[in-house]
Nucleic acid binder design. Structure first.
Lengths: 164, 164
DNA sequence: ATTCTTGCAAAGCCTTTGCAACTGC
DNA sequence: GCAGTTGCAAAGGCTTTGCAAGAAT
């Protein structure tokens, strides 16, 4: 984990159950949903649907693709996960028990470095005020290369492909 | 236009021609590519592939979907356009003759408000230095509601759907 | 003339959905 | 037992691609 966890009153599982039962049309908490929540919050990682399915299968948990997609939608709605739009596939990030943060994304190895910034928060407050904009959330992603990948330029970069 | 244009030595068309001819494998500049570049830079707007095709057809310009996708890729590579990952479909933004900027995106009406910030640039420089990260670009998108949409809450928002 | 670009339609990829069987409450 | 959930497979939406015909250099 790159950032310290935030103290929360409930486990993700509890928070999800509460969300499900407090809906206008109460929804059910199933075994598979429980497995997903537990697995997802057993480690702090960014993931997409496929990575989650692979990971759970490797952990001996059985899940169906359709249910994963359906449950991810609910987890976002419940405030447990946050969507990150960083390319063709949707990426998810913990949004409960973990502080608001931004990302440095290495375009070579895919590594995500997280950071927090009070200055940014202050800046966004000011800008939104100036434009009379009412923010609900934001995403900041910096693309580039991490220190290791920057050093080892010689491994399969885009430039190499151009030269073929 | 919400931001002042940046002075550039060449027209987008010239810059694109130069890019095409200076490749290891020189590429050709076709009539359809010229139409696309001219149309895209005749106004400052964010757009996706479909909006571009519709717009060009409305302007009496004939284009095929496949060619649009192929040419957009080249325009990004040439540094004329910038990709914005803000959802299921890829959105494009001018990257030549227009200053670096960030976006406030209204999730109700889709409007994009642009703003510039020296503070952000400085902040990113510092953060990247701290993490020994070598940035190549960044995207900051703030989601929320613009002043008009915030006033008229009653129009079809997500909350309304939940109540049905 | 050569080699790249085009356009069509087909395939690809990720995600959503219809429906019958199943299960939490 | 009712109403929501699952799993399969089929459909959906956006994007890419194979190939023959056409166009730029």
């Amino acid at each position: 984990m790159s950032l310290p966890a935030v103290k929360v009153a409930h486990t993700p599982e509890e928070k999800f159950r509460e969300y499900l039962s407090s809906r206008a049309k109460p929804q059910r908490f199933t075994e598979q949903q429980r497995d997903m929540v537990r697995y997802i919050f057993s480690q702090h990682k960014h993931f997409d649907a496929d990575q989650l399915i692979d990971g759970m299968k490797a952990a001996g948990l059985d899940v169906s693709r359709a249910t994963v997609y359906r449950t991810l939608t609910k987890l976002v709605d419940a405030g447990l996960l946050r969507k990150l739009d960083i390319g063709p596939r949707v990426c998810y990030d913990h949004d409960y028990g973990y502080p608001q943060h931004e990302h440095l994304q290495c375009s070579k190895c895919g590594k995500m470095i997280e950071f927090q910034s009070k200055v940014l928060e202050e800046l966004l407050r000011t800008v939104c005020q100036e434009h009379q904009f009412h923010p609900s959330g934001h995403t900041l992603i910096v693309r580039g290369n991490c220190s290791e990948c920057h050093r080892t330029r010689t491994s399969g970069s885009k430039r190499m492909l151009d030269l073929i």
